[in-house]
Design a binder for these strands. Structure first.
Lengths: 121, 121
DNA sequence: GTTAGTAGTAAACAAAAGGTTAGTACTAAT
DNA sequence: ATTAGTACTAACCTTTTGTTTACTACTAAC
């Protein structure tokens, strides 16, 4: 009932700003899903599209460009191959997202259990 | 260069689905910011609007309704007071988001430092 | 009695995000 | 020769999200 204050007044704006900075890069429906797929070893465009349920080629293409701009993946063209093969590889920097993805996936899993049992009050 | 696979193939879909469930509740531009403000002890409508830079009354109102539906806050009307005071209080369930908010804020903070130094390749 | 504050809602609109369809140019198999 | 796959892009449309302005109804201060 009387909820404890977790963050101090001074920390509030700091936290909001930090989350804002994170969401600028990770926000939207798809970016974290793409990062998970990359972590899982999927590298090719159509492979990613098949794995990430519901994403269109246009949106995937745009999202990949933005993730590359933010240093989370590298687009590698294997020009020696026929046909030319394009690979999207998570960078080392993307690995710093492990905690974020982990925390969110954990919570999501627990939340799903909660709503399937409680059916939400 | 040769990025290690962090999640196994089997875990990929599980992770994506879990993150999907989390984003269903927390996704969008405002929800996490509102939760942080609630954690910080801000409880009143106008107080929240002042604290969360850029949010309009309409959007704040809608977001608060959704957060209440998902059990993350309680809308409490102090009817005895004049004028009537409305308080939005984070629930205990919302406290389970501490790790998520923490991980995201941490990453956002580090990312901001990175881009202000490196200026991004 | 005018101004400011509380806690919003309604209507109208604009912007951002995402979806749909089709198409390119090339290869490889049937 | 047709079908299927790769890796996309363009144009167009819809949906979602957010903004702005105005308004309610009430209180409290100046």
């Amino acid at each position: 009932m009387d909820q404890k204050i977790i963050f101090s007044e001074v920390q509030c704006t700091k936290h909001i700003n930090a989350v804002e900075d994170a969401l600028y890069v990770l926000g939207g429906k798809w970016k974290l899903r793409i990062i998970i797929a990359l972590f899982s070893g999927y590298t090719r465009f159509n492979e990613l599209q098949r794995r990430i349920n519901g994403i269109s080629a246009r949106v995937l293409s745009n999202e990949l460009k933005q993730l590359e701009l933010n240093g989370l993946l590298k687009r590698v063209v294997q020009a020696d191959q026929t046909p030319v093969v394009v690979e999207y590889l998570a960078t080392e920097y993307a690995a710093t997202l492990k905690d974020v993805v982990g925390a969110l996936a954990d919570w999501g899993q627990k939340h799903k259990k909660k709503i399937t049992i409680t059916d939400n009050v």
